[in-house]
Design a protein around this nucleic acid. Structure first.
Lengths: 250, 250
DNA sequence: TCGAATTTGTGCGTATGTATC
DNA sequence: GGATACATACGCACAAATTCG
C-alpha cells in the first residue's frame, strides 16, 4: 500500500490543467509558497513538482518572477504527402498548397552504383546509374535534400534519362516512367529519425545540427516488381511532417 | 561573482569520470552519504547531482542499493510496418519476426479529451475518452512508447472499452473495432523527427536525449469516415525504421 | 529465517542569495 | 526600497528497498 508521492500528485494535477487548456500558455502558475500553503506541504513538494514540469517542457521558471505555462514553439510545418494520381512534381505542388514558392536546384551525373544503391535497385554493383542531387527550396530557404538513382539500363537512350532536362523535366517519377511504358505504384518508404550530419546541417541552415527525417524511397515497376528509382530524402525535423495514408472519404 | 552551485560541480566531476571511462558501466558510485561527507555538504547536494545524472541517462539509481554507471545499450534496428490483414498486435508480431520477445505494459484511464486529442478524434473538447498508455518492451528493454485515445461514446459499454482487458486484449485496433461492427482501413500516420523530451529519453533509456520518430496515428471508420482511435507513438530514432508501402508482388 | 546496516525516496522546516516586480 | 519569487543549501526524519551476515 504505497500512495503516490505528494509532489507527483501535485505535478499531475498541474499537468492535466495545462494539457486540458484550462491554463493557457503564458499563464502565471501558483508560487511555491502558495502551493505549499494550499497542500499543507513544505516547499520541497512544490519545488519537486515544478522541476518535473520544467523538465517535461510544460513549464518555464523565471528566477524571481514565477513559473509560467510554456508556449509551445510552433514551427510552421511543411507537410509532405504522396499523392496517387499526381503528375506534378510532388514537392512543387505541396509547397504551393502550403503557401510557399517551391523551387529546386539539381545536378545529374552518371556513376557506378555503390553497393547500397545497387542492392536497393536490384542491379549489379558497379552497374551504371544516373544520379541526381536535389536541393529543394521553399521561399528560397533550403528545406529538403535528396539524392536519386536510376539504372541507366532502364532509361538509357530515352528522353527521360536526365530527370530534370528535356520535355519531361520536373514532373515526378511516375509520369517520367510512363513515357517508357513503365507503370509504377506507390513508392515504398523507409523512414528514420537521426541527427543531421554536419554537411546536411549546413545545407539546410540548421544551427546547430538537429534531428532530420531521413527517408529511403523506392519506386517499383508494377508489372515486373523491379525497382526503377530509389532516393535518399533528408528533411529538417523541425519543419516537416511526412504523412502516410488517407482519411476515407464518405 | 556567482560560483557555479556545488551540486553542479559534483555532477560535472562524476560525469567526466564516467565519460572518460574511468568509471566503467556497472560500477557502483559513492552513496549520497559518502559524497556528503567528502564534500562537506548536506545530502541535498549529492541528491541533486545524482538526479541530474540520472536524467541525463549516465546513471541509474536502484532504491536501497545505490547509484550505478549505466551500461550502454545495443543498437539493433527494429522495423515497424503496418500490415493490412493482421489481427495480432502489430508490435508483438513484428518483434517476434525480428527475433525478439515483444511484451508491453499498459494503463487505461478515462479522461476528458484535451483540445488536441478532441480535434484529432473529431469530438467535442472535454468529451469522455479512454486513454491508454503503453510501454513496449523488446527483450525487456523499453523501445517504444504510445498513448492511445478512443471516444468513450463509441466503445462505451462494450467488451472492448478497455483495450487491454477482456477477451479482446492485445489484438490491435482493427480487430477490436470489428467487434462493434466498425471496419477501419489503413491508418493515417503523421511522421515527424524531433528530439526526445527528457521524460521520453529516460523511459526509452536514451543517453542523452537523441532523435525520435514521433508518429500521430489515426484510424477511421471506413463507412462513415469518422476517427475511431488516435495515438501518439514515440520510437528511438537509432533503433527504429518505420516502413510504408509494399513492394509489388509479381 | 531473521534482523541489522546501508541506501535511496520523500518530506519538513529553515536559511541565504539573488532576480524580478 | 520593499515585497515577492525562485535557486540553492543545511539538517533532520521516516519509509521502503536492498544487502549481507
Amino acid at each position: 500500500m504505497s500512495e503516490t508521492p505528494l509532489y507527483l500528485r501535485v505535478a499531475e494535477e498541474l499537468r492535466t490543467r495545462i494539457e486540458s487548456g484550462e491554463l493557457v500558455p503564458g499563464t502565471r502558475l501558483p508560487s511555491v509558497a502558495e502551493i505549499s500553503r494550499q497542500y499543507g506541504g513544505s516547499n520541497s513538494v512544490a519545488t519537486g513538482a515544478y522541476k518535473l514540469l520544467v523538465d517535461d517542457g510544460l513549464v518555464v521558471s523565471r528566477h524571481g518572477a514565477g513559473h509560467y505555462v510554456r508556449s509551445p514553439d510552433s514551427p510552421e510545418l511543411l507537410v509532405r504527402q504522396h499523392r496517387r494520381r499526381s503528375e506534378d512534381s510532388p514537392f512543387a505542388q505541396g509547397a504551393a498548397e502550403q503557401g510557399a514558392v517551391g523551387t529546386w536546384a539539381h545536378e545529374s551525373t552518371t556513376e557506378q552504383a555503390a553497393p547500397s544503391v545497387a542492392d536497393r535497385l536490384g542491379i549489379d554493383r558497379g552497374a551504371a546509374v544516373m544520379r541526381t542531387s536535389y536541393t529543394y527550396l521553399a521561399d528560397d530557404q533550403p528545406v529538403q535534400l535528396a539524392e536519386s538513382w536510376e539504372p541507366l539500363a532502364l532509361t538509357g537512350q530515352s528522353l527521360i534519362a536526365l530527370p530534370e532536362v528535356g520535355p519531361y523535366a520536373g514532373v515526378g517519377v511516375a509520369a517520367r516512367m510512363r513515357v517508357i511504358s513503365i507503370e509504377v505504384g506507390d513508392p515504398v518508404e523507409w523512414v528514420r529519425a537521426r541527427m543531421a550530419t554536419r554537411q546536411e546541417a549546413q545545407s539546410l541552415g540548421m544551427t546547430p545540427p538537429g534531428p532530420v527525417l531521413a527517408i529511403e524511397r523506392t519506386y517499383y515497376d508494377q508489372a515486373t516488381g523491379r525497382p526503377v528509382e530509389t532516393a535518399d530524402i533528408v528533411m529538417r525535423g523541425d519543419r516537416w511532417v511526412s504523412v502516410y495514408g488517407q482519411r476515407p472519404t464518405i
